[in-house]
């Protein structure tokens, strides 16, 4: 479905993505795991065309996202849904208007049809009856569920999730995980999840990709990852502060640094 080939992305000379290649298969849930600053959100932005990679190719079906013109990219985006980290709901619009937004922009439908479709998506995320509320009246978990309903309203082929469970209580996080799984199972939606939540990743993933400082260090099924012998992966999974991934982020020697200053 989506193939990432040798993608490099630099910001002001710093490599955020360093020669990353990966495949995201149709109808599967792929989780991109990594710590903060590992480049996982950057990778998501390149795949969706929100940013252009410094070099490399990104194939979405047949078309190369990096070569598309704005108009073609927009056509492609109609097949994508994206759940942003904070939900990114429009504050000035009600839950109903938020979910109906893409329909109103892209399709000329009768209000009755729109109402039915919004109700269906709200039912899917378990929030039917909340149409009239404003985003400010919702809890964090509910906001994400509304945002999910909005990203599903155009019946996308692929849904991208940017840290869907971060900042949520365990129950809300569990609800989101269940939704991701159910949507994949019932609608066959290809799902790409960016996360640092190991529990959630092991729970939902068909395939896991682990990024570390912009490089891919592991790729495989949940069993592959669990049985790996790569010290960096083991450290990340177990959340140990010491290991091959250093505690200190300074590249200078501590004593040298103090003595010179």
């Amino acid at each position: 479905m989506i193939t990432v080939e040798n993608v490099i992305k630099t910001y002001d000379g710093l490599k955020a993505l360093d020669d990353v290649s990966a495949r995201f298969e149709r109808g599967k849930i792929t989780v991109i795991l990594g710590g903060s600053g590992s480049g996982k959100t950057t990778l998501l932005r390149q795949i969706t065309g929100l940013e252009m990679p410094t070099s490399g190719r990104i194939l979405f079906g047949e078309s190369d996202v990096t070569q598309l013109r704005k108009k073609e990219l927009f056509e492609l985006r109609k097949k994508m849904g994206m759940l942003f980290q904070g939900g990114a709901l429009f504050n000035s619009l009600s839950v109903y208007e938020n979910i109906a937004f893409p329909l109103r922009e892209h399709a000329k439908l009768a209000e009755a049809t729109i109402r039915t479709m919004v109700k269906m998506k709200l039912e899917l995320v378990g929030l039917r009856g909340m149409e009239k509320l404003m985003p400010s009246q919702l809890s964090g978990g509910m906001m994400k569920r509304v945002a999910l309903a909005r990203s599903l309203i155009m019946d996308p082929q692929v849904v991208f999730y940017d840290e869907p469970t971060s900042g949520l209580d365990p129950i809300s996080a569990g609800v989101i995980d269940k939704l991701i799984k159910d949507l994949n199972a019932t609608l066959g939606v290809t799902s790409v999840v960016v996360s640092h939540d190991i529990v959630s990743a092991f729970n939902i993933a068909h395939k896991i990709i682990i990024l570390y400082f912009g490089k891919k260090i592991a790729e495989g099924t949940v069993e592959d990852i669990k049985s790996t012998e790569d010290e960096r992966v083991i450290q990340f999974i177990e959340g140990r502060p010491e290991g091959p991934i250093p505690f200190s982020r300074s590249d200078k020697d501590f004593f040298e640094d103090i003595l010179i200053s």
């Binding site: 929100l50 985006r77 994508m80």
Partner: peptide, 13 residues
């Protein structure tokens, strides 16, 4: 709050 990016992702300029 990424609302601008959300518009972009929904194919709205």
């Amino acid at each position: 709050t990424e609302q601008i990016k959300a518009l972009d992702m929904m194919a709205v300029n």
